[in-house]
């Protein structure tokens, strides 16, 4: 019983307290509108989304819908189920706005990603092109070096050709000169023999028994001198010959003197004495019969044997 009394006292006190506080609550409701916790939450969510710098301006239409929905939810309703419904709608619209803004942000990032990838590809291609270029440059340099080498070889070959041509020209001119000398020799009535070219100076040079040159023979000797001056590689052997009148010793001495006389003329006109040999052959080498005056005249002679050029002799 005692216990029962106690509990009834407590219960009645509690009842009074509850009624009192309800009264206070009702009074506060009347004072200003009570915020439904759902309403407070959606407003907070909206504010958070609106102040997110990454998302705030990315889905303007959905954002406005969400803001409108939140405002509607905040309207005072007689029926709390209407508020619950409006809070639900506001919640979903905020979520839609957030998702749309994130999609927009993602798509914007995609552009940057695509550009990055393109840049990577571009860089790779540029590097490939550069290395190809370097390889090409190396090849080009090698080619250039080869071309230089080749042109060096070519110019060497050209030089060799030029040298050959010069030698050919020299040889040609030597040949021409030889031909000219040959012609001069022919003009001197020289004859080709085994011993070389033989020029026979007739007895017109000398009077009988004498060895001094007659004035009339000078022109023939002058031509010989000119020829020898132009052909310094040739030597001459001068042979004196007589007819068979008079003794052998006399004719031998006479033929020697006549040969010496011709040699002296040549050396006297600038021909090196080393190139000139004078020999007396007496009457031992006749070219005609000594029994007739014409034959003896033919035998009285001086022969000038001109050596073939050193080159030709070899």
């Amino acid at each position: 019983m005692k216990f029962n009394n106690m509990s009834s006292v407590i219960r009645s006190t509690f009842l009074v307290a509850v009624i009192g506080s309800t009264g206070v609550l009702l009074a506060s409701c009347a004072g200003h509108e009570t915020k439904d916790p759902g309403v407070t939450r959606v407003r907070a969510n909206l504010t958070e989304l609106q102040s997110d710098p990454k998302l705030a301006n990315r889905a303007p239409v959905a954002m406005k819908d969400a803001a409108d929905a939140v405002s509607q939810a905040e309207q005072e309703q007689k029926d709390p189920s209407v508020t619950a419904h409006l809070v639900y709608l506001a919640d979903q619209k905020i979520n839609i706005a957030r998702a749309n803004a994130q999609t927009n942000f993602t798509e914007e990032q995609r552009k940057a990603l695509s550009e990055q990838n393109s840049q990577i590809q571009l860089d790779a291609r540029t590097r490939e092109a550069d290395s190809a270029k370097r390889a090409n440059n190396m090849l080009q340099a090698e080619n250039d070096a080869a071309a230089i080498k080749s042109s060096e070889l070519k110019s060497q070959a050209d030089n060799a050709n030029m040298r050959n041509n010069q030698l050919q020209a020299q040889s040609d001119s030597i040949n021409q000169k030889n031909d000219a000398l040959q012609a001069q020799l022919l003009a001197l009535e020289a004859k080709k023999t085994d011993r070389g070219m033989v020029l026979t100076l007739g007895d017109v040079l000398f009077s009988t028994g004498r060895s001094d040159l007659k004035a009339g023979g000078a022109s023939k000797l002058n031509r010989l001198t000119t020829f020898l001056a132009q052909a310094p590689d040739r030597t001459v052997r001068i042979e004196g010959h007589t007819d068979n009148r008079g003794g052998e010793a006399l004719n031998q001495a006479l033929s020697q003197r006549r040969a010496d006389s011709v040699a002296a003329y040549l050396t006297g006109h600038g021909i090196d004495a080393q190139r000139v040999t004078a020999v007396g052959s007496g009457y031992n080498s006749p070219i005609a019969d000594n029994k007739t005056e014409a034959g003896r005249q033919a035998n009285r002679r001086v022969e000038v044997i001109i050596s073939n050029p050193a080159v030709a002799a070899r």
């Binding site: 959905a62 979520n95 839609i96 749309n100 990603l113």
Partner: peptide, 28 residues
């Protein structure tokens, strides 16, 4: 009906976001 519409619209937005993210991940 209004709530169904809001739910469906949210599903659409989430699907688009999911696809966009998948594309970006592929790109990355």
């Amino acid at each position: 009906a209004d709530e169904a519409r809001a739910d469906a619209d949210l599903a659409t937005s989430k699907a688009r976001l999911g696809k966009a993210n998948a594309v970006n991940q592929e790109l990355q």
